[in-house]
Computed example of a mutant assay.
Amino acid sequence: MCLFSKHYFDPKGFIVAVNDDDEMVGFAHAGFGPNDPHNQVETDTGTTYMIMVRDDLWNSNLPDQLLAQSEAYLRGRGAKVLYGGGINPLNGFYLGLYGGSELPGILLSDEPRRRVFSRNQYRERGRVVILQRDLVRFRPMVNREQRRVAREVNFETLYAPITLNWWNTSVYGSLERIRFFLRRRRQDKVLAYVTFWDIEPLASSWGLRAAGMFDLWVDDEYRRHGYGTYLLGESFKELHKRGITTVETQTMLTNAPAIEFYKNLGFAPIDHGLVYRREARNS
């Protein structure tokens, strides 16, 4: 579901290494993201979504050879810019298998893959901060502003919300998703919404039930007036009722307002993702 069933999966971009006994010992997976309208694949920019080798081979030259083959495939399809790892919008594969709430590039804690890209002239061009919030001890904020917001809005739930375009349907459509939103009372106006998905199968390996948070939106007119805080507070209460014990989200490290907002809600950083990029060679 996460890989081979994607209709834009190209077997030529999935490079497999075998030993003398025809046993698979590693692979690299190259691919692309969407064009600006998000209605088809765009090949000007490509990424090596994944490199995997047997544990005892990370210090060999096999990872570098796999990366070189991945780059050759991407350049052959017309890529001018090469990335390492998956990062939105280069997020067509491995959601739920690597990273967490979203694809983070290459995790800072993932030293073997970081070394492979670093020694092959990939440079960090951005950094993602990954944050988690424990819901077991969560208590929503209570103050005058939050009471005012509660009087003004209805908190509503939508299961399996419609995706906005072809690419988002391809990436998120098969996931178990739920959207919470605030609607102004006596008006048919949505003021804010947020979407969560069940981080599986990755969360099972963590030994907990986790929800990934993405697509948080608050109407410009209502930002910094407590609506986002109220929305997430009510969302976390509802998720906890459904057995979710942890919420994870991520944002760029340069997005200081978002990081401060999340920290005020009790989120704590647990890891970082590195956005690696290399300019493609002409030969």
Rank of each mutant, 00 (worst) to 15 (best):
F4K: 11
F9V: 08
V16D: 07
V16G: 10
D21S: 12
E23G: 04
G33D: 07
P34V: 11
T43R: 12
M50H: 10
V53L: 02
D55P: 11
N59K: 15
Q65L: 14
Q65G: 10
Q65S: 14
A72E: 12
L74I: 08
G76F: 01
A79G: 02
K80G: 12
K80S: 06
N88W: 13
P89C: 00
G92Y: 10
Y98L: 05
S101F: 00
G105N: 10
L108E: 14
V116E: 08
Y122W: 03
R133C: 11
R137W: 11
R139V: 13
R139K: 12
P140F: 02
V142E: 09
V142C: 05
E145A: 13
L158E: 15
A160W: 08
A160S: 14
W167H: 05
W167T: 08
V171R: 06
T195E: 08
D198S: 07
D198V: 07
E200D: 10
A203H: 09
S204L: 06
S204W: 01
S204N: 06
W206L: 07
W206P: 06
G207W: 07
A210Q: 15
G212V: 04
D215E: 15
D220M: 04
E221L: 03
Y222M: 06
T229C: 02
L231M: 00
G233L: 02
T245E: 14
T246D: 09
T246R: 11
T251P: 00
M252A: 13
A256S: 12
Y262S: 01
F267D: 03
F267I: 06
F267N: 04
V275N: 04
